[in-house]
Design a protein around this nucleic acid. Structure first.
Lengths: 107, 107
DNA sequence: TCGTAATATTGCAATATTACGATGATAAAA
DNA sequence: TTTTATCATCGTAATATTGCAATATTACGA
């Protein structure tokens, strides 16, 4: 009890939910917004900008990264993040098709 | 500690996160999909269809409903749900603009 | 090699979410 | 009136998420 029963849903439904989950925390939305506005980006900027601890920002970054939305490369000791546009667009399209399909079928 | 610090983000960021949260559970995605495919809908159909308990389905329905995505009316003892298309489209547009804005600013 | 800055990881406490049984309310059917 | 069906709510257990301090790791410059 308590855990999401992923196995009872089909793959495309789980996919939508997983995508949505990335955007379901304001810190992650703020991080994506901020990264998109910069030329690359470093963690410490985000700490100052957003106001969460470095550990917490790093954690959120890894959630975004695990979803495939980040390209990160080290420039010296700083890490420059960049949004993986291909993946980001994939998310956009998948979500949007869900909306369109749902609307079309609707009463 | 532990709770999301909503107050440190601006309104539009929280709005995106709140919208995403509705779709961030596969049961809610499945419910929306199913409702959209029916002429109205009742809870027990969803219980059979999805395979969660009636209480759990009802809980998810209220999350979707609190977000403003449902129009529900009773027909006798059955409750007929319908998606609130206006609100649903609003969500679609808000999410999509977030994607577009983020992409545009991106490196 | 040492010191330091940037980032990642770990461990833990606080809080939120998910799921379900039990209970209650309501309305049709018997 | 009693029964049955539908749905919401409450209480609670299991699990997940969030956030941070402490600690590691990594990479650079002196």
């Amino acid at each position: 009890m308590g855990a999401t029963k992923r196995f009872i849903y089909n793959q495309s439904i789980n996919e939508i939910a997983n995508i949505a989950k990335v955007f379901a925390h304001p810190a992650r939305v703020a991080i994506l917004k901020y990264i998109s506005e910069q030329e690359g980006c470093i963690n410490n900027d985000l700490v100052d900008e957003i106001g969460l601890s470095q550990a917490t920002i790093s954690q959120h970054l890894s959630v975004i990264g695990d979803a495939g939305l980040l390209k990160g490369r080290f420039e010296g000791k700083k890490k420059c993040y960049c949004i993986n546009i291909e993946r980001f667009e994939e998310f956009q399209i998948l979500l949007n098709s869900f909306f369109i399909k749902t609307k079309t079928n609707c009463c």
